[in-house]
């Protein structure tokens, strides 16, 4: 009953909290060409733990923004975000107003989309069923 597969099927959080589960989900997303959404999700968690007073934190915020949100063409993350969420983050980064929770809303939107789409597909995918 407490097999890894049963745990991973409980919730996206239980899947992503487990190294093997997260690795398997990554392989699935690589096939679907949307691994960016997973990297962004982890980047948001990593950012939340950074010290807002550290100069490195601003560089990381800019890097996340540039890589996943600003990208004009075909960014899978950018497509899943609401316009107000994107403009909020643009203002934070350009105005250098950093807060550990600044990516929370964007992360929640990407997470909801993963739960509705990629996670459900993953639970019925060959990669999961053959594990």
């Amino acid at each position: 009953p407490d097999s890894p597969l049963a745990r991973w099927a409980k919730s996206l959080h239980s899947l992503l909290g487990d190294k093997e589960g997260a690795d398997l989900f990554r392989r699935f997303l690589e096939r679907q060409r949307c691994v960016d959404t997973l990297d962004f999700w982890f980047a948001c968690n990593g950012f939340r733990q950074m010290d807002p007073g550290d100069a490195k934190t601003l560089r990381v915020a800019k890097a996340i923004y540039k890589r996943y949100i600003e990208s004009g063409g075909g960014g899978t993350v950018a497509k899943q975000l609401k316009p107000p969420t994107k403009s909020f983050l643009r203002d934070c980064v350009k105005g250098q107003r950093l807060d550990p929770s600044m990516f929370d809303q964007a992360q929640a939107e990407v997470q909801a989309s993963m739960e509705d789409n990629a996670y459900r597909l993953f639970l019925s995918s060959d990669i999961y069923l053959e594990y």
Partner: peptide
């Protein structure tokens, strides 16, 4: 000085679950 990609990768890795 670390490149932007390195910083981003470091941030992602810091949040990934570790092997038990």
């Amino acid at each position: 000085i670390d490149s932007e990609d390195d910083l981003l990768q470091e941030c992602i890795s810091s949040a990934m679950p570790k092997k038990k």
